Simulated assay, not measured.
Amino acid sequence: MSANRTRERPIDDVGHGDHLCLAFADDAEQRRVVTSYLQVGLDRGERVLYFADQNTPGQVLNWLREAGTDPAAALDSGQLTVTTADDSYLADGPFDADAMVTALHKEVSDCLAAGYTGLRVSGEMSWALRDIPGADRLDEYERKVNAVFAGHAASAICQYDARRFDAASLHSFDRRHPAIVAPHPLFTSPSLDLVPSLRNGQQALRVIGDVDYHSFQAFSSALESILDWPGDLTVDMNSLQFIDLAGMRALVRTAERLRAGRRLHVVDLDPMLCEVMHVVGWDQIPSLSVTAREALA
């Protein structure tokens, strides 16, 4: 199992001690994760804090309502607070990483003293892309804030929009978190999983299992869906067990559809399959890059 997969945590399994990174490139994925995370916290009797930025607090509350959870009682009692980054991370103007860590420590103590079962926090981190003094300390903050959650009755999910943050920043923030939110598969079956993931700060489609006659249509549909991702595309073949000729042709067709300047990177492909791509001449397509999987020692 890859190191990345061992760091993944299904959203329904997030609990005390977790500080997770959610890197998303799809609004529906963000909404799915956030809604589930908030609902579970409310159901468990936790104090729930949400710091919005790209979305408004009203939009976040509507996510709950449309998922069948009326937030009114939790808002009235103080169990739920949905505010903005300007009124939380940036309440004093500049971003003060140390002050925010201290405030979160106090929130944990206060919520337990008030009888809640724990603290649950999620924030949209896009505010850091604005010209705000102290925003350059976000990486330091993510490292320091681990101590707020590790071993305590608290959890957090930090949300990074992969369409806004560059790959280097995403990779850095990802590594500052002990774990990441497990992405929702685009397709899953007993023989194949097609899962969006983050690889070195870039969105990737991870192919796990077999691409054959039975799963070809799902594979083609997944490739079609990632065409909307920003920048170059990456298909991670590290966990691929088998792919037939039709599946390989689907990769080629996807690369050929990219506009000038974009490339499809097929990475960690079995060396024998790389040789097939070379013999056929597909590796000469300008918009297609193929990298072989390293042999096991």
Rank of each mutant, 00 (worst) to 15 (best):
A114E: 15
A260R: 08
G134Q: 02
A204S: 07
R293D: 11
F95P: 11
S155G: 06
M237N: 03
P196K: 02
H16W: 15
S77H: 12
S287Q: 15
D53L: 00
H171W: 10
D212H: 10
T83H: 08
Q39W: 04
E142N: 09
E224V: 08
Y50D: 10
R176W: 08
R31P: 04
V33N: 03
T56E: 13
A91L: 12
T56N: 03
I157T: 02
P271L: 11
V267G: 00
P178D: 08
H152L: 04
V279I: 15
Q203Y: 14
D27W: 14
L251I: 05
V276I: 11
F95C: 08
R9V: 13
D131W: 02
D228G: 07
S189V: 10
P183C: 03
T81W: 12
D193R: 14
S169N: 12
A73M: 08
V267M: 05
A204F: 13
W63M: 00
A85T: 03
G15K: 06
L61V: 04
D174N: 11
T84S: 09
P190M: 03
S109N: 09
I132P: 06
K106S: 11
V181E: 04
Y213G: 02
G15L: 15
G68V: 03
A153D: 13
E256C: 14
Y141P: 15
A72K: 15
R199Q: 10
T69A: 01
E46G: 06
E29M: 03
Y37P: 09
D98Y: 12
S191Q: 13
P185E: 04
L264N: 04
L22C: 00
H184N: 05
D166P: 13
A103I: 03
A297L: 06
Q217A: 15
V14Y: 07
L90C: 02
R175T: 04
V101M: 13
D12E: 14
M1V: 01
C111F: 07
R176C: 08
A153Y: 12
C21R: 02
V14H: 05
R259Y: 07
R5M: 03
P94I: 00
L64S: 00
L42W: 11
A292T: 07
A72I: 08
P190D: 12
Q203E: 14
L258T: 05
A182D: 11
